[in-house]
Design a protein around this nucleic acid. Structure first.
Lengths: 221, 221
DNA sequence: ACCTGTATCAAACATCTGTTTGATAGACAA
DNA sequence: TTGTCTATCAAACAGATGTTTGATACAGGT
């Protein structure tokens, strides 16, 4: 059995057995994100992680157990250094007294920052890519991630949108608009192959990323 | 015997062998859209289509051949009765002389209509869902669909956005904004499990669909 | 009649899949 | 030492997967 070092999963652990678990988790994020859960075999995983075939079942109880462990692993990473709202360092009290202009400015900063984090840095952000895959799929992984991570950040977005558009926070249009903001950032990463084709780009260069930051739909009516 | 059951389909099959191919294609759209390509087995397909196991390989050369055939099948359906831009019955000459207000109005109508087509009508639109899955994946299917269907409609969207925002059609921001419009409609369908959780909805009722139509980000700066 | 190409069918094939097994080595304590 | 618990390893397992095979039936042309 393993001890309780699950709280801190940000950097590689010290104990040998924890290193094995960590290597498998990182390999899973990479391969699940790139090829999808179903298309990734356990033998792909153990080759990438350079561990024994039985390690996945020994440490995580099976491929499905690994899937859930990856969700939790990513959830802690996102809690510590999540994209978007968390970066702005806001709390609800601050948002409540924001001017619409300031709220829009904050939203655009959040959108830019979160997109930049996902898009830049060489290849695709496989962490974000895997999360987005799971969120699309539905079922237990989606609910698990929604509760653990998304719910909190989404509510902050809703409050910012409410200030930005001068509408009530419990207005359903406000909530849909918050989603439609997230949708723009997520889609540009998730459907990257199509987007690059449509824009005639080879990849997301720093110049392209800056340009996208100015193109989000985010105005007052 | 069973020729009036597929009233919404593009073309009913005539010859017996064509009926087999057609049944497999429809089953593939349904299962690939619901579970994904990798997670769908050939035996799932032939059970759904009620044909023999060897039929997939005989008619399509294998599971991968079927994947490409499905892309082409959907491409023809989209050409005949595509969502969004095609419905508006526009051509480039009309768009060129539109006022910004009229262009925005047209865009919102297109967004509403295409979202409504995908979201309403009982369960999820598995055709759209499969297409969106493939577009995310990248590779040959993405390029195939981009060339055959998406490219044309996307260019019309770009021209409408250019008029709506009074920017040039070859401005890259214009093109990104067109994508960010599509992103909103697509994401609401693709990430439906997450969206429903976030909004506290059980499903997309007609009321919900109408509400979403008013919540798209689509304004002038 | 005969021949030919097409389509369907049950069965089998070779491989891949996730999982389990039993052996083995190291760490730590009595 | 001995015993026990943990982790890793190679090997094997049972089932699923995509594909192929060979037989069969049917339709149209000669």
């Amino acid at each position: 059995m393993s001890d309780q070092t699950d709280q801190d999963a940000a950097q590689p652990p010290e104990a040998a057995s924890e290193q094995t678990k960590y290597a498998i988790l990182e390999a899973a994020i990479k391969l699940f994100g790139a090829k999808g859960f179903e298309a990734t075999t356990v033998r792909d995983l153990i080759t990438e992680a350079d561990v024994n075939l039985a390690a996945v079942n020994y440490h995580f109880g099976g491929k499905d157990g690994l899937r859930m462990a990856v969700i939790d692993h990513l959830a802690t990473q996102f809690r510590q250094k999540g994209p978007g709202v968390a970066l702005a360092g806001l709390d609800q009290a601050e948002i409540g007294i924001m001017s619409p202009e300031k709220a829009r400015e904050t939203l655009r900063f959040i959108m830019k920052t979160s997109f930049k984090m996902a898009a830049s840095g060489g290849g695709p952000d496989l962490r974000a890519r895997y999360i987005q895959r799971e969120l699309i799929q539905g079922g237990e992984p989606t609910e698990r991630f929604f509760e653990k991570v998304f719910s909190f950040q989404f509510n902050l977005m809703v409050q910012l949108v409410a200030r930005a558009t001068e509408r009530a926070v419990d207005d359903e249009i406000t909530r849909v608009r918050a989603i439609n903001l997230i949708a723009q950032s997520v889609f540009l990463n998730l459907a990257r192959p199509l987007v690059l084709l449509a824009l005639g780009w080879d990849e997301y260069t720093p110049e392209n990323v800056d340009l996208v930051g100015d193109a989000f739909w985010l105005h007052h009516e």
